[in-house]
Amino acid sequence: MDTVVLENISKSYIKNAPPALENVSFSVKKGELFGLIGPDGAGKSTIFRILTTLLLSDAGKATVAGYDVVKDFHQIRSCVGYMPGKFSLYQDLTVEENLNFFATLFGTTISENYALIKDIYEQSAPFKNRRAGKLSGGMKQKLALSCALVHRPEVLFLDEPTTGVDAVSRQEFWDMLKRLKNEGITIVVSTPYMDEASLCERIALIQTGHILSIDTPDNIVAAYPGKLYALRAPKVHLLLPDTRRYAGIRQCYAAGEKLHIAFKEDGKDHPAALLTYLKSKGHQTVAIEEIRPDIEDCFIEKLSNPQ
């Protein structure tokens, strides 16, 4: 049996408003690093709160480590680690006191599982006598992860651990997750950063309470309909409105220093025809090349063509 299983989970917070989750089903295999990828308001935190037994769903069924989230909430609470999106440690306790507190709560000691948290905890160890509330954002994040791991959970739930974190620190955080995965811990992690999707083994793309697709990042990219091209020009933002007006264009949006475009139909001569059109609009030095879509391209495609 898979470690995390959701079957047709629905949840509404407000009557007559669109539900936060509607018929969400997916499962996570033992030892898998699974990503929930979607913007704010997609329902990611609601999924975490249901799986950690902090919230009851309106309909559907879910199990974690073989335990039912309603009947067996007690067992679930002792075998999962949960890092909420909002910093939730005790601000007035020191780094070491917080870690001790969570160890005691789970009936263990810091030393019992120290090997697991050593790499992470040692980065905040120089501040072990500092109050948690006085730590920097990056240090808070590492301490929260240490506290979520102190009882060596079977499943680790991480709700947007990298939001608001700079690109370099985000990379370090993902390196830590890979090491934890190698320790056999099943990890479910959410992120609004599409570029982090490729770091997961499997992902669910989620938007306004609905799963758009679930697969490995490679398979999601392979399923992109048609070809995707990149347009490059010295002043790419001037190119955008004219390209959008071109009749044969299905998708056209900025992607860093390039435009990403897809034609309504793929044809051999379409790229050249587009360049001729752009030239007639005064864009002389435009280059076009076919590229491999990334997860963000797939997400945008799914948003514009919901099935």
Binding site: P39, D40, E160, T163, P192, Q207, Y253, A254, I300, L303
Partner: peptide, 20 residues
């Protein structure tokens, strides 16, 4: 200050249209 944090990729681009 980080105006687009957590916003979906389509809306993020619409936001930049407003900036332009």
């Amino acid at each position: 200050d980080e105006p687009t944090g957590g916003v979906d990729p389509v809306t993020r681009r619409q936001f930049w249209d407003l900036i332009y």
